[in-house]
C-alpha cells in the first residue's frame, strides 16, 4: 500500500516521513474511533481500521539512512490514508 501524500491542516496521526511512501500491511489492529473526527468535536464514527505498515528504512530516508538495507520502520496508519500502490 502507499500512504497518501496529502498535506492536511486538521489533526491526524500520519507522520510526514511516510507520506507518499509504500509499505506492506503486516497486521490489522482492528477498528478505532477516527481521531481526525474526534479531535475536532466529531464522534469518531464510523471507526476506521488501523493497520501496522512496514516500510523499508532506505525507502523512507534514502541514502541518509545508515544501517542495514533491510532495516524497517513500522507505523500504525489509519486505512483512509492507505491506497493501492500505483502500477507502472
Amino acid at each position: 500500500m502507499t500512504v497518501r501524500a496529502d498535506e492536511v491542516a486538521h489533526h491526524h496521526r500520519t507522520p510526514w516521513f511516510v507520506k507518499g511512501k509504500s509499505g506492506v500491511v503486516r497486521r490489522v489492529h482492528g477498528a478505532f474511533p477516527n481521531p481526525e473526527s474526534r479531535a475536532h468535536g466529531g464522534s469518531g464514527m464510523p471507526k476506521r481500521r488501523l493497520c501496522q505498515v512496514e516500510f523499508r528504512q532506505s525507502d523512507i530516508w534514502g541514502p541518509k539512512y545508515r544501517g542495514r538495507a533491510d532495516d524497517v520502520l513500522l507505523a500504525d496508519i489509519f486505512e483512509q490514508w492507505l491506497e493501492p500502490v500505483p502500477r507502472g
Binding site: R13, H29, L50, Q52, G67, D71, L74, A75, D76, I77
Partner: peptide, 12 residues
C-alpha cells in the same frame, strides 16, 4: 542484526 523501529503513531 535486523532492526525494526516501531513508531507508535496511533491507538496501539
Amino acid at each position: 542484526m535486523h532492526l525494526r523501529v516501531v513508531d507508535s503513531t496511533a491507538d496501539v
